[in-house]
Design a protein around this nucleic acid. Structure first.
Lengths: 225, 225
DNA sequence: ATTCATCAAGTCATCAGATGACTTGATGAA
DNA sequence: TTCATCAAGTCATCTGATGACTTGATGAAT
């Protein structure tokens, strides 16, 4: 059956306003109608208009100035990109992070400093193979190591994204398949460090790919159920 | 002089709430205090609380359910992550996008449907080699092709990120080194499609890497000046 | 003629109160 | 045990009011 339409006045008002802005009805810097007028145009109360406007302000599309009016700041909607990424599936997020892991390892092999290398080796040693101090602490130590590899790439954009994906993936896994993924052993981790230490980008990529394959395979198996 | 602090109750309330959520005061799926209580806690009216909550809902942190309450949906602040990525350098953003290009081409080689292949070939043909219709139109056609490769990977997270990076990179390039990057020719593009058509992931990765190398080298040269 | 303080209208910011719609757990009859 | 009913709690929405701020007009002082 067709699901009943659950309407939400504020959401409708927000989308109406957004589409008017994106369509260019008002140019950048131009003033949009005041709250009372928008209230009439959208047939909702001023409070609802204010909530809609506030959302668009937070997304960088509008700009309110007390005593003056509300103005169009931008007609490009880019703020929701990562929100949409969060709503994609676990497999997609995992693969995207793996793409970062791969290229970061390659760049790390080309650029790592001795300090980077020390850091990676230290974190790998601290990581341990067993779940000392609880699985949560172990996951945290494991992530610290992987992040140090990305950090050795010297690429801040990839570091930021890696953090984002790690948080998003952790959240999703907790909500779904908690704790059923295989954990590559210390040797698989060491292979990555060795390749980076040897400044061998191709071997670094191969090591990460070998590392990822069994985890991704298990992930696909779990998700297909 | 220190600019006078212009405070805005709704913004303050939003940030207070956001930091409480990010700090983990309420776990995911947990219910936050009701509007009246938040109104007391934050010392603002219910209307202001509603505006703050609405913003956090639009950013994916909260979730309101009429008749039931307001719940924590996520503790990841993706809007801030994007801002930080935007502030990284052009080289970092380019490399991050290249990481997506590489893995997307590999996945596309494994998963592309005949329809994907048709789409890629059509867009590559439309792209042309010369700047017919102006360089801006050419860039648009070029991007449409590259996006079709990412689309063939079947990974929505990578598509969203690719769009974001493309917008960010375009913006930065316009503001800085406009039009001085080498443009790989039709043959380099065709090599990618051929590898994907042959379902050869390794060759697809190699083709993209060969494609990227000269552009990235020139980019580094320009940025080092 | 120019400068500048003052003022009034318009606008957003915020508050308070009220009603409606919806969810959820408790209650009690079948 | 099952299921309809109910009451309390919560968000959704509206209405009216007051305060704070911006802006252009006005007019006096220079």
């Amino acid at each position: 059956m067709q699901p009943a339409v659950r309407t939400n006045l504020t959401a409708s008002a927000t989308e109406s306003l957004r589409s008017e802005i994106l369509s260019g009805r008002w140019g950048i810097g131009e003033r949009v109608p005041n709250e009372a007028t928008l209230s009439d145009l959208l047939s909702v109360s001023r409070g609802t208009v204010r909530e809609a406007v506030r959302v668009l302000v937070s997304q960088g599309l509008l700009d309110t100035r007390q005593g003056s009016g509300t103005y169009v700041r931008s007609t490009i909607d880019s703020s929701a990109a990562l929100d949409r990424v969060k709503r994609t599936g676990l497999r997609d997020q995992w693969e995207a992070r793996a793409a970062l892991d791969l290229e970061a390892a390659r760049l790390a092999a080309l650029r790592r400093t001795p300090a980077d290398l020390d850091q990676m080796r230290r974190l790998l040693a601290e990581r341990g193979n067993a779940a000392d101090g609880g699985s949560e602490a172990f996951v945290r130590r494991d992530l610290a190591f992987h992040k140090s590899v990305v950090a050795a790439s010297g690429n801040r954009a990839m570091m930021e994204l890696y953090d984002f994906f790690t948080a998003a993936i952790t959240e999703t896994i907790h909500a779904t398949i908690d704790g059923e993924l295989p954990e590559p052993d210390q040797q698989a981790h060491a292979a990555i460090v060795d390749a980076i230490a040897a400044s061998d980008p191709d071997r670094a990529v191969a090591a990460v790919r070998a590392f990822m394959a069994p985890v991704l395979a298990q992930l696909e198996r779990l998700l297909s159920q």
